[in-house]
Design a protein around this nucleic acid. Structure first.
Lengths: 162, 162
DNA sequence: CAAAAATGGTTCCATATGGAACTTGACATT
DNA sequence: AATGTCAAGTTCCATATGGAACCATTTTTG
């Protein structure tokens, strides 16, 4: 059942990866897609959790009293999708939503104990898969990649591109 | 109209980018999304071209006599989506489809002149935007990033991850 | 303080997406 | 040649997605 590692069509991908007119960006997208799709498919299959739900879970795990609009700003995802993610998580009892006394439009989001438990499980899978990919590099290259992608992503977050 | 470069929610994103349990992968996805979404939105808005159409256009521009199943292998996208992209491009007169005499199920895809013209225009926009992002790094970092992402993406393409 | 603008969030709708079933054609085994 | 298996593409369907209109609250402004 294990397919040969180098199926011809996969090898063809390599040629296109070397295209240099668009530089590292196509490669970065290729790596991101290779990571994201399988992991979200797995979350959906094994935990019945959609991408939007995971995103909300993830951000909320990192910041107590998060508000929906903040998740939008952090992730760049549209607010209607975030809204749906929040609703589903709340229905499943994975997060709590408490109205902000200062502004009735907003509410504070926090993980429940159950939500924290699930998050711990998922983030472990997430980290394993990330590690499986990054392990294709030797330690030196991996360290270099981490330094440069952190720099770039931080600058990108702080910049308003046209 | 120009927003301040450092809106609070964007700065919050930076904190999360520094999360190290999942290392460079979250950052890579962040960079990829920051690139992909705006550029495809623009292609759709200004050229009425969907993501799938662009993908087919792109691969076909790189390989004469491409077949649909090859595009699937190269990009990892499902074949029904590719099929739709091919149909739309053909309807618009941007690619030609000629049945393979050796196997009636398959056909060879090639850009028309009109298709080539459009491709040239789009890839220039694509490259400009890629450059705008990569220019946030100094030359040394940028060179390092390009080397390492090429290595990683090539190994990833040649590997069958779980 | 009333009217207008803005903001957080939800709902509506039209489109994009991907899994699965299906169609047609190639090919292997008998 | 009949049969079963596989492969390339298409179609069907149920879900995900994101823009736009909308609602309910602040906040701003005259």
């Amino acid at each position: 059942m294990t397919e040969p590692a180098n199926k011809p069509e996969r090898m063809e991908a390599i040629g296109i990866l070397e295209e240099n007119k668009i530089g590292a960006i196509w490669q970065i997208c290729f790596i991101a897609n290779s990571f994201i799709f399988p992991i979200y498919a797995r979350f959906d299959r094994e935990y019945d959790l959609s991408r939007m739900e995971f995103v909300v879970l993830y951000v909320t795990a990192h910041r107590a009293n998060t508000m929906a609009w903040e998740i939008c700003g952090i992730t760049g995802l549209p607010k209607n999708n975030i809204s749906r993610g929040v609703q589903k998580l709340q229905k499943k009892g994975l997060i709590t939503r408490v109205a902000d006394p200062c502004d009735a439009r907003r509410s504070f989001l926090n993980l429940t104990e159950k939500g924290t438990e699930l998050y711990e499980k998922l983030i472990a899978l997430y980290a394993d898969r990330a590690d499986a990919i990054l392990s294709l590099l030797d330690d030196e290259d991996r360290a270099a990649l981490e330094i440069v992608t952190l720099k770039l992503s931080k600058r990108l977050a702080a910049t308003k591109l046209s």
